[in-house]
């Protein structure tokens, strides 16, 4: 598996880099500004890919965790761990770009919108996941506990989203929903390109990070440190 990752990851990286470069050009220079939002709509081309990839990253993490609990394959655990690390970055990126997009369009950096709250909770769960892993010495137990946390979090996130949506509709009308943008064709293509690029880059990053975590464990095993406990 690690050999497969090492063999193919570069192609994902290169393809992702090309997609993002072309998408950046189309999104920032060639595409028209939005009728209502003006130029600011160009933030969409980076915000939407960030948001969708971070949700996908959590989904992949949950799938890897389930697979780990089922088959107990350590490389899959490395992959879940890697996805969490990369996912923290992408989720933080989605919140950051969303906040910057919110200032000129809704005139506020932050609002207690269902999606924002769900993403914040997602970020908190991911950070808690990474913290939990650093506090456990036994690698096998670390993998099991982390997988359990990932699965429980995956069950929780949709409930968080729905409850916050109900809560918001009670307290104030959902006036600030970015769903209102009708996406024209000229804007759709760079968006698709950027999203594709981000998915490829996500795959590449997860591949690199999985290797990194795997090699770290391998090295520790080689040094004879914790040889009995290392989970390889």
């Amino acid at each position: 598996m690690i050999r497969m990752i090492r063999k193919y990851e570069d192609w994902f990286g290169v393809a992702g880099g090309i997609c993002i470069a072309v998408g950046l050009y189309l999104g920032l220079a060639a595409s028209p500004p939005d009728y209502y939002q003006g130029e600011v709509v160009r933030i969409m081309y980076i915000h939407v890919p960030f948001a969708s990839t971070s949700m996908t990253a959590y989904f992949v993490m949950t799938a890897a965790s389930l697979w780990y609990l089922w088959k107990r394959n350590p490389i899959v655990d490395n992959m879940a761990h890697a996805t969490a690390g990369v996912g923290v970055f992408f989720t933080a990126g989605a919140l950051f770009t969303g906040s910057i997009w919110g200032k000129p369009t809704w005139n506020t950096w932050w609002t207690w919108d269902a999606r924002l709250v769900s993403f914040t909770i997602l970020l908190l769960i991911l950070i808690g996941y990474l913290m939990l892993r650093t506090f456990i010495e036994d690698k096998e137990r670390e993998a099991r506990y982390a997988a359990v946390l990932a699965i429980v979090g995956a069950v929780d996130l949709p409930i968080v989203h729905f409850s916050v949506e109900w809560w918001r509709t009670l307290h104030q009308p959902l006036s600030v929903s970015p769903r209102g943008i009708a996406i024209a064709g000229a804007m759709l293509f760079p968006l698709i390109l950027m999203s594709a690029g981000f998915y490829l880059i996500l795959t590449y990053m997860v591949g690199v990070r999985t290797q990194m975590l795997y090699l770290q464990q391998l090295l520790e095993a080689k040094k004879g440190r914790l040889l009995g406990e290392v989970h390889l």
Partner: peptide, 13 residues
Amino acid sequence: ILLLPLIVPVMIG
């Protein structure tokens, strides 16, 4: 740290 984010729906409800 692990528990509080997950019980947000309980708190809201």
